[in-house]
Design a protein around this nucleic acid. Sequence first.
RNA 1: GGGGAUGUAGCUCAGGGGUAGAGCACCUGCCUUUUAAGCAGGGAGUCGAAGGUUCGAUUCCUUCCAUCCUCACCA
Length: 522
Amino acid sequence: MQTEQNELIKRRLEELEEIKKLGVNPYPHNFKVTSNSKQIIDNFKDPETEEEKEKQKENIVSIAGRITAIRRMGKATFCHIKDDKGRIQVYVKQEEVGELSYKILKLLDIGDIIGIEGYPFRTKTGEITVHSVQMQLLSKSIYPLPVVKEEITETGEKIIHDAFADIELRYRQRYIDLIVNDNVRDTFIKRTKIIKSIRNTLEKYNFLEVETPTLQTIYGGANAKPFITRHNALGLQLYLRISNELFLKRLIVGGFNRVFEFVKDFRNEGIDRTHNPEFTQVEWYQAYADYFDSMNLFEEVIENAVLELYDTTKVNYQGTELDFKRPWKRIKMIDAIKEKTGLDVIKMKRTEILEYLKSNNIEFDNKIANRKGLLIDILFEETCKEDLIQPTFVLDHPIDTTPLCKPLRTYTLQQLEEMKKDEEEIILVERFEPYINKWEIGNSYTELNDPILQRKLLEEQVQRGRGGEEDTHPMDYDFIRAIEVGMPPTTGVGIGIDRVVMLLTNSYNIRDVILFPLMKPH
RNA sequence: GGGGAUGUAGCUCAGGGGUAGAGCACCUGCCUUUUAAGCAGGGAGUCGAAGGUUCGAUUCCUUCCAUCCUCACCA
């Protein structure tokens, strides 16, 4: 659409000129607001006598908002204006606001922002309305908004006409989406409340909120493809973080015993309904604690957020009732597989698992065919994940799935040494993943703090990368040094905020919980 | 990247080989308690883009672009 050529825009530009000719600044600098739509409606009391009615006229409020509907009736006009707290009807009579103001009003459109001084009253049809004694244009809109009309039928059913529903436009022009669609507004308010609640719970337990770099010279803390960028002055290749894990652990080494950070992570991978290239996580790290402590805190953090929003632990997501009440179900990955398939993967040979995967048409990257632990992980994902609807912790993954996690405490040092020599032996680590509605919504470890093993595991990752495996963890010698300096026993957690918000706001697509999701330019 | 669907007025949509339709929005007029306000009249479109077939394409074909769904990829 060519802005200059659009008839509606042209018309509005003409109106703008007319307003200026009347000596009125269409973009004044300020307006004193003393109330809002919700407050007025909540505080309104119907007068019981004529005397009271007259008295109410002295109760002048000042509100401002955007015009969302206009009904002109000659020398009087009704509009609905929308402010930060909701919507309210305004009644303007020429006789009362004066001829100039009424002339201006005639030049106004849906989308314009006005200030109103007046007194609340109830109309014949029963709507609480501000009877305007003064009206001021605060900002003239020249780009036409979609006009959404609501009809409330006799049965009380709400019908929305001409909703602004084009998904692409809604994402690309979120400012319009927010003006027009109340449920969108509501979702993002809830998003903020969820983040605030998580922060509150962590602060209650004396976690310190910190900030770590987004631009990193070595990325790490997860297995993912990074975005690559460049610092000109230093002539340096940099990465946008895929995780902040290694920095938060450095802080644990540095003596902050409890830290957390809300971060944008960036992963250069596919986009779908649960993945956006930039997404939000909160990670926290706690010294002198293990993954059992993390499970407890995880449940509490999420349950608190749900309670904060809904005063109940039950939430409907796309027709499924999810109950976030603590304690959540806990199941070991190995047991989940056994329950579902009858297979005892610990006893099985690698080749037997391979055979099972193939005969069940489960696809996987051939490069990992010789890694028994990763095959088990795939087997789990393909067979068990679909049943994980209610909040469930899946525990104790094979060590091959991560180089940053500590083996189970049940192994003796000697056992571990022997297991490492035998490729058929599966070392399990103290890791858990919380699943809700089949989605991983986080990750947690009893963190590896043995510098010798840490170095060895990262070196293996590098070897695997050279062998052609994708998304292996890069070497970070400074991180190794930090662990060598000595990290106390520690546990850490990451939560995918976007997915949690999706679940708690009944949002189908991750883009519905990200204000400005990535869109290709036209 | 594979498969499926969609793209027509500011918004929501219908239509269909012969040059474009509705409701709302917009414009003009009437209207001082309306509320999907009403009544009367009017204007508005490169039919996503580019090629091709055809006397003629918004419609059929091809390619491209964008979006959604789905699969693959993504601890």
